[in-house]
Design a protein around this nucleic acid. Structure first.
Lengths: 135, 135
DNA sequence: CCGTATCCGCCCGGATACTG
DNA sequence: CAGTATCCGGGCGGATACGG
């Protein structure tokens, strides 16, 4: 029955009676749906190449409160990108890692990272210019 | 004064008193901020290689209502990704195109598109399997 | 043709406090 | 340690109607 629930929720964003059935999911849109959450891409990026515990993820993504972080992780898990492994020990231990499918998204993250660097530079430059003109 | 306003709104998502000043913007996060809107990546993708008028964009992104579409376009314009050109003619004519900066994001969009195709396939496959097992 | 105005629901995300 | 519980505000996005 767990599988059925998974199937039902494949489309997380519950768009009921969508008036436009034609090509509801173009590839770009589908990707945006999965990693469009505020911290999702960042989480995936941090998880690249290493397994992290919840507390480590909190440090890696400090802006996200535990609730938000949990939510995003649950989404990612539900969507098959992240694996959550609970170790029945004390103190509790939960590890998050990428699934094969999650690893496959790496090119997107790399592209985002690379482009983001350029963007931040551009932004700094503009801010500097504005300051100079003000001064 | 227009420039100042632009500077003020460089960080669109108004996170006041952010408690974590350390590395507020990692590259991945910055990119997600810019193209994280529901249709932004799709708009940029459709705008790749061709200038489109508003009405054409509406057809290209049918799920977005005019208001939403306008909003996303304004964001993209403000962020320097899209150029909006108004022609003072009757009937009115407005063309949207990518700036150089907007064009530079293409690798990200391509990566998203490519990965999205795989994701949709994977999803279809799973749905098929589930149906087969049910039957 | 290209939007804006208005209203609204909803979910996302934030803050704080609390548990197994 | 790894989360939930609860409450909350805000903004994003949707629907419909209207304006330049």
């Amino acid at each position: 029955m767990a599988e059925e629930q998974t199937r039902e929720n494949t489309d997380r964003r519950d768009r009921r009676q969508n008036p436009v059935p034609v090509q509801r999911h173009c590839p770009v849109e589908a990707t945006a749906d999965l990693i469009g959450g505020k911290y999702k891409s960042l989480i995936l990026y941090k998880l690249t190449g290493e397994t992290l515990r919840f507390s480590q993820l909190r440090k890696a993504v400090p802006c996200a409160t535990p609730k938000v972080l949990t939510r995003q992780l649950r989404d990612l898990e539900r969507d098959g990108l992240v694996r959550r492994e609970v170790f029945p020990v004390v103190p509790p231990k939960v590890e998050y890692s990428l699934t094969d499918f999650g690893r496959s998204i790496r090119p997107v993250l790399e592209a985002m990272s690379a482009w983001g660097r350029g963007y931040l530079q551009e932004r700094r430059r503009k801010e500097k210019n504005a300051e100079d003109e003000t001064a």
